[in-house]
Structures are given as C-alpha cells and as structure tokens.
Design a protein around this nucleic acid. Structure first.
Lengths: 202, 202
DNA sequence: CACTCGGCATGACAAATGTCAGAGGCGCTG
DNA sequence: CAGCGCCTCTGACATTTGTCATGCCGAGTG
C-alpha cells in the first residue's frame, strides 16, 4: 500500500531534494509539488493526496492557513507541517487547524518518512522539543485588543497610525501597548513585539 | 575527475537530502557535513574539500565568517554560499570575503550541480536576480557610527542603554539615529532598522 | 595656506511615547 | 441582585525620543 504525497515548499532546492529522497522509500510516492500556499491548495484539489507535507513559511498563504482550507475541502487528506524555526504559538495554531504532525527541518529523512507513515495511519506526531517549548511558553496572556494593537505596532508604525487603523483613541492605544509590554516583561513596545513573535503570540 | 564537497547547513533534513541528490552526480562526492559554523571549519580542516557549500544562516558563525576563515586556512578550497532569503548586503560582504558563488535555495539541484562545477573550475557564479537586487540597493549610505548605533538599536533598546554601550551622549545617539532614519527614508528608528536589515546594511 | 566639505559630537527644544487613575460594560458567583 | 473581577476605553501627566543649530576636527582642493 503506497502513500500519495503532496510536497509544498517555496525553496525548489529543498523541495526537489526531499521529493527525491522520499521517493526512495518503497511505500511513498510524491504525486504533486507546490511552491506557494495557493498553489498547494490547487494541487491538493487536483491530486487528492493522502498526506500533505507543508512548509510553515510560504508566499501567499502559510502552512496553517492551507491546512485550514484543506481540512474543509479534503477531510481525508492528513496534513504534516515542516518548519525551519518553530515558534511555540504556531504549533498551537497548527493543531487547532487540524494538523496531524509538526516537525522541525532538523529531523532526518528516514525519520520524516516514518512520521509520514504515522500520520497516514491516523495518528499524530509532534516533535518533542517543540512540544516542550509550546508547553513552557503557555498560552498568550494578551487580550484580543492587546494582541491586535501589538500586531499593528509590529512594523514600527507611530501610535497615531495604529489608532486610526484600529479605530481607537491614541490614549487607548498607548494603554494597550503599555499593558502588553508589562505582561510580556518587556522594556518597551518593540522588545514586546519581538518577544510576542518569538512565542508565536502575534 | 571528482569534486570533493563539504556541505554545511543547520537543517539535517535539507543537508541530508542535498547530499543524497548531489551524490547522484557521477563527478560529485560529499566528503563531509556540518550543522554549524565552527563545525564546518573543523570539517574543512580535517577533509580539505575542493568546494564548500555553506548555508548563510547557521548557528555559531554565519556563512560569510566561515568563508573568511577558510580563505585564510585553505586557499585552495572554493566557497559557494546558498541562502534562503538573500539580502543584497550579504552578497557584497560574501564577495569581499572571497566567496566564488552565491545562489538562493530556489535553484534546482541540477543547476546547483552545474554551479558547483563552475566554481570548482575557478569561475564565479552569482544568481542574476540577487545580483540585480544588490546593484539596485547600492552601497550603504550610513557612516560607521550610524551603522553601529542602528545595530545597537536593533533589538529595541532605549537610547540610554545605547548611549552607554557606545560610550556616547544620549543626544549624539539620537542624532545618529535621526540621520540614519532620514537617509533610509524611514519614519522612525524601528522601520529604519527593518529597512537596513532588508538591504543587509547592518 | 585658506577654504570647503563631511563625519563626529553635544545640548536645548518640540513631539511622540509610556504611565496613571478612573469610568462604563459584561459575565460570573454567592 | 449585589458584589467582584476582568476587559475595554479615555484624558491628563511624566518620560522618552526626534529635530535642530552649533562647534570641533581631519581630508581633500584651489
């Protein structure tokens, strides 16, 4: 019994190499490849693979978004996410999106092949180290508005612009920012953005 | 005649896949692998490869630093840098460090094999798109102190801390930041940091 | 040499940001 | 339903940051 795979990663070199390596396994066959989120969706619709192996960081739509769409359109297709730099929050969002596996790119190809089989069998697999990170990082202490405002502040926009985009007064924006900063134990909003990013909370 | 290769990348999955794929070429043989900058150096000393294929982003020391050391210790070893997200400034620094090739991870394995041969023959190869980016981005307009202060401001530290670390008055630090911001056409120091990062100027 | 230009450095002032106390609303619990 | 805790929101005030005018010094130029 062979497992039909969809491979999605924006880096041709890695995708091609991975395809070659996984094809060496007798029970795995790569039926489609994609270089972006939307392309991955289109390929999945066309080929209906058993397992979709998605990179977390892709142009167009990230792995989690693709997984969400796939869950709705192709419930029989298991999703496995592979990532370079795993942020704790991403893992949580991925699991909520119905992803069955979540592994860093530091695993070996053999291990990946095993995990693909595990996922195909209906089981879940999460890298132990990433799981530990996610647990120790815990849930986001930020409220919805705090996260929203912090998100808007992420690229260095001044308070006036954030206030306009969020339809809030400048005082309120400063207040949320201040609250987020103290909750994260940061010194100012910018380090707060960095910390929230690292934990995957924005 | 075979080309002896050193492969360095912190992601096992990619490194292993790449090694497998390049080994399919009759004239290429992977003699060593490394997962970090220092390890790459040690491996190079031990195996004296003909060509070193280095990832730009590695723990310990980045590809450019490794290339600089290699140039001094093993002048006969050509260096080829592979990168996920190519920043214009990195290309310039890489070439100054004596790197012979610079390609994004979006190339195919065949293309990479060809480039390895090109580099081994003593020629240079730079990805045309990255080259165009580097040329259009041009040289950094920042002075030494401006770049230094911007670097210290990168993680969101307050001016007082930057001033102390750079042994300058706070007014001077603000002045350099202001100057850097206007040169980069940014709205504030944080977008300036982001822009400088994108162009590889910090 | 006298002059100009650009980098380096500083303090004073204006503008943006961070902090604070408090008001209204909503859900939970006794 | 009264009381409590939390989220949301606001303006006033203190602090930090950004801008400007200015001086000093070394390199290049007529």
């Amino acid at each position: 019994m062979t497992v039909r795979l969809l491979l999605a990663d924006d880096e041709h070199l890695i995708r091609g190499a991975l395809a070659a390596l996984l094809s060496l396994e007798d029970d795995l066959v790569v039926v489609a490849e994609a270089a972006s989120g939307p392309e991955a969706l289109a390929m999945a619709r066309a080929h209906e693979p058993d397992v979709a192996v998605l990179d977390l960081q892709m142009p167009g739509a990230d792995g989690v978004k693709v997984a969400t769409s796939l869950r709705a359109e192709l419930p029989g297709c298991r999703v496995l996410i592979v990532t370079g730099h795993g942020r704790p929050g991403h893992l949580k969002r991925a699991l909520e999106a119905g992803v069955r596996g979540f592994v860093p790119k530091t695993v070996s190809a053999q291990k990946l092949a095993e995990i693909i089989r595990t996922v195909h069998a209906g089981n879940r697999y999460v890298d132990p180290e990433l799981a530990a990170d996610a647990i120790s990082a815990g849930d986001s202490p930020l409220t919805a508005r705090e996260a929203e405002v912090l998100e808007l502040a992420a690229d260095g926009a001044p308070v006036a612009e954030i206030a306009e985009r969020a339809a809030l007064s400048q005082g309120t924006v400063r207040n949320y920012l201040s609250s987020a900063v103290s909750k994260l134990g940061a010194e100012n909003r910018h380090t707060a953005v960095r910390l929230a990013r690292e934990r995957g909370w924005v």
